[in-house]
C-alpha cells in the first residue's frame, strides 16, 4: 500500500475501553516520540476477511478512536489496529486482542430514584442504556442485552449504622415499617450471571423518613 519506511517505534498498549458498549480504542504514543505523531486506525470483524479503515481516525494526533458504531453488533467479535507516522517514517500496525463486546464491556451502576413516606422508602432502579449512535436513536436498555440482569441494593440506617442487603430482579423496591424521622442511605449495583458481569455500587442516595405526625 505504498507505506513509507516503517522504523518508527510502535504505538503501545492498543486496547478497547468499553462502558455500556461504548467501545473506544485507546493506545499510548510510541516510546520516545514527542509531539507531531499522527495515527490511523483500522478494524476487522473476527472471521471476516478484510480490514476496514476508519476515515474519522485518519491522520489524527489524539490517542483514542471511537469505534462504537463499527462494533455495535455484540454477536460479533472484533480486532482493531493502529499505525503511527512521524517525519516521513511509520510504525508497524499494532493490534488489540480479540474484543468481545458482550463479555468485555463494563457496566455502569444503575440510576436510583428514592422517595419516602413516614414509615417507608421506595426505590426505583434504572439500568443504563446501551450506547446508541445518536441521542435520537432508539434507546436499548442493558436489561435487553443481559436478560438475567439483577440488582443488589444496600440500605444503611444512619442511626443504627446497620446495613441491609436486597437482591431483586424487578426494578422497584419498597422497604416498609421503617422508623419515622430517620435517615437511610441507599446504593445499588447491577449483577449479571451469564456472562458473569457486575457494576460497581452507585453513589449513596440518602433520604429521611418523614417525622411522625403528632396525634
Amino acid at each position: 500500500s505504498g507505506e513509507l519506511y516503517c522504523s518508527l517505534p510502535n504505538p503501545r498498549n492498543v486496547h478497547f475501553e468499553s462502558i455500556n458498549m461504548k467501545n473506544v480504542l485507546h493506545w499510548s504514543a510510541p516510546e520516545g516520540t514527542g509531539d507531531g505523531v499522527l495515527y490511523k486506525v483500522k478494524y476487522s470483524v473476527y472471521g471476516v476477511g478484510k480490514w476496514i479503515r476508519k476515515p474519522e481516525c485518519r491522520n489524527i494526533n489524539r490517542t483514542w478512536c471511537d469505534l462504537s458504531s463499527e462494533t455495535s453488533d455484540y454477536e460479533e467479535q472484533y480486532y482493531a489496529s493502529v499505525k503511527a507516522f512521524l517525519n516521513g517514517m511509520c510504525s508497524d500496525w499494532m493490534e488489540t486482542t480479540r474484543f468481545n463486546p458482550l463479555t468485555d464491556t463494563k457496566i455502569d451502576p444503575p440510576m436510583l430514584s428514592v422517595s419516602s413516606t413516614e414509615k417507608s422508602i421506595s426505590i426505583i432502579l434504572t439500568a443504563p442504556e446501551k450506547w446508541k449512535r445518536s441521542p435520537e436513536g432508539e434507546a436499548v436498555s442493558l436489561l435487553q442485552v443481559y436478560p438475567g440482569l439483577q440488582y443488589n441494593v444496600s440500605v444503611l440506617n444512619k442511626k443504627t449504622k446497620k446495613r441491609w442487603f436486597f437482591s431483586i430482579s424487578n426494578n422497584t423496591l419498597v422497604v416498609p415499617w421503617l422508623e419515622p424521622g430517620t435517615a437511610y442511605c441507599v446504593s445499588a449495583q447491577i449483577y449479571v450471571t451469564t456472562p458473569l458481569l457486575h457494576s460497581g455500587f452507585s453513589k449513596e442516595y440518602c433520604i429521611a423518613t418523614l417525622k411522625e405526625k403528632m396525634a
Binding site: S44, Y46, G47, V48, G49, K50, E75, E76, Q77, Y79
Partner: peptide, 12 residues
C-alpha cells in the same frame, strides 16, 4: 488467523 472463524462465519 483473523480472517476465518470456526463457529461464527459465514453463518452465525
Amino acid at each position: 488467523i483473523r480472517t476465518l472463524s470456526i463457529l461464527s462465519h459465514p453463518h452465525s
